[in-house]
Simulated assay, not measured.
Amino acid sequence: MFGIPVPVPRDLARAAANVRARIGSGGLADLRPTDSEVVDENADRTIRRFRSADGPGVGAPVLLVTPLAATSIAFDLRRGCSFVEYLRDTGRDVYVVDYGPVNFADRSRGFEHWVDDVVPDAVRVVSADAGGSDVHLAGWSLGGIFAVYAAAAHRELPLRSLTPIASPFDLRQVPLFATLRPLDRLFGPLTVTPFYRLVGTVPAPLTSLGFKVASVDKYLTRPWTVLTNLDDRDHLEQIEAVDRFMNSMYAYPGRTFGQLYHVVMRSNEFATGHMRIGGRQVDLDAIDVPVMVVAGSGDGLAPKQAVRHLTDLLGGAPTVRYGVYPGGHLGVLTGRSARDTMWPAFAAFLADCDDAGSDPTGPR
C-alpha cells in the first residue's frame, strides 16, 4: 500500500526448507564448541588449547586474547565459521584466554591487571605448554589493545609476533565517541563516574546494548535481512550465531571502565603512543616483534583510520603490516567473508614470521 517492496528470497523452495528446519530443530547453526582442553586456570582466567588432531602443531602457537565484556565465543562462533577451528585446521596449536564472568568483587581491577598480570602470565603458560616456543600473540578489540601494551611493557616475553584486530588507537576517529564527547564535557563527571563507582561494574545487559548501539543500522534492518536471505542457510546460521554471542556478554569491571572512560573520552591517550600503567610509562615503540594491524572496512566501533593510527606508533617493530578486510567490528574477526580474506592473510603472516624466526638474522 505504501509502495515498499516486500523482500522475497530468490529460491522459495530452499527458503521453505530452511524455515521448516529452523522450526523443527530450534536452530540452524551448529553452535557446538570446537574441541579443546583446559591447559591452566585460576581465579583470573582460563586458558584453553585447541590442538590439531594431525599431530604436533606446525609453527609457533597462537594465543588469542579476548576483550572485556565479550566472551571467547567470538573466536569460536559456530562450526564452519570459527577462527580457532580454521587456525587449528592449518596444523597450528591455538590457545584462548578467557576471563569468565565479572562481578562486584572484581570492581577494583584496572587496566594494569590485564597488561601486567593476565596477558603476560598467559603468554608464559602457552610458551611452557608448547615446549618453550615463542608465541604469536593476537587479540580482538580491547583484547588487541591489552596485547599491544603487554608486548610493549614486557619485552622479555617470548613473542614471535603481535596482531591487534579491530583495535582503535585514535579515538578522535570514532564517530560514536566524537558524538559523545560534547555530552561528556557537560554531564560526564556528574553521571558516569558516580555510576560505575556505586555499582562496581557495568552490567552485562549494558555492555550488550553498547555493542548493539554501535551497529544499530544492522539491528534495524535485521528483519529485512532475514526475509531476503531465507534461502541462504549459511547466512541464517551466521545471524543465529551472532545473536548467541551478543546475548552472552559479561559485565565490565568498574575501575577498568573508569580508566578507559578517561583515556578514551577525555585524553585520547592511546593515540600518543605512551601510557602510564602500574606507575610507569609504557611506550609502544618498545615493541620489537613483527606486527600485523587488522581493520574492518565497515567497522563503526573501530573505523579503519582509528585502527591504522597504531602503525605510526610502532617505530621499534622490524615489520608492520596493515590490512583492511570486509566486515564490521565482529565481522572482520569472524564474519563469513573473513574465511576467505582476513583468516588466510593472518595465517600467511604467521607463516612468514615463523620463517623469519628460524633465521638467526631475522626477527626473534
Rank of each mutant, 00 (worst) to 15 (best):
T319P: 02
L310D: 10
Y250C: 04
A69N: 08
R124N: 08
P205T: 08
F245R: 01
V119K: 02
G132I: 09
A128V: 12
R276L: 02
V291Q: 02
S133K: 13
T163R: 05
H274A: 04
L350F: 13
G210W: 05
R107I: 00
D121E: 14
D54L: 11
P223Y: 11
T334I: 09
Q305E: 15
G139W: 12
F195M: 14
V6A: 13
A286D: 13
G362A: 10
F146A: 11
D98S: 15
V102M: 03
G315T: 11
E112R: 11
A317Y: 12
F195L: 13
V123F: 02
V242Y: 06
I165Q: 01
F245W: 15
L137M: 08
V148D: 09
Y86K: 06
L183P: 01
V293H: 05
L350W: 11
V293C: 07
R48S: 06
D93V: 02
L301R: 07
G110C: 05
G323I: 06
T319I: 06
H136Q: 07
F211E: 05
M265L: 14
H235W: 12
D184C: 03
V84F: 00
Q173L: 12
A15F: 13
V65Y: 03
N229P: 06
G55Q: 10
S161V: 08
G362R: 10
K304H: 14
S215L: 07
S248H: 06
G327L: 09
F346V: 14
G316R: 11
Y196R: 06
A214G: 15
W114F: 13
A295F: 04
A138L: 15
L310I: 10
Y99T: 10
V174Y: 06
D121Q: 13
P164W: 11
T228I: 00
V115K: 03
T201W: 02
G80H: 01
E237A: 08
T225W: 07
R181V: 13
D299K: 05
G316N: 08
L12G: 03
A295Y: 02
P33G: 04
S127R: 04
V135C: 01
G59P: 13
A151Y: 06
L220K: 05
G188S: 09
D354H: 12
A317K: 04
K212G: 04
E269S: 15
T46M: 07
H136R: 05
V97N: 04
G3E: 11
R109Y: 03
M1C: 03
A166F: 12
V39I: 15
R92N: 09
L171Y: 15
H154G: 12
R336H: 04
R51P: 01
F2R: 09
D359F: 07
L333C: 03
F75R: 02
N268L: 10
T334L: 00
T272C: 07
D76Q: 01
F104L: 15
R197A: 02
A105V: 06
R14Q: 15
V119Q: 00
A70F: 02
R364C: 03
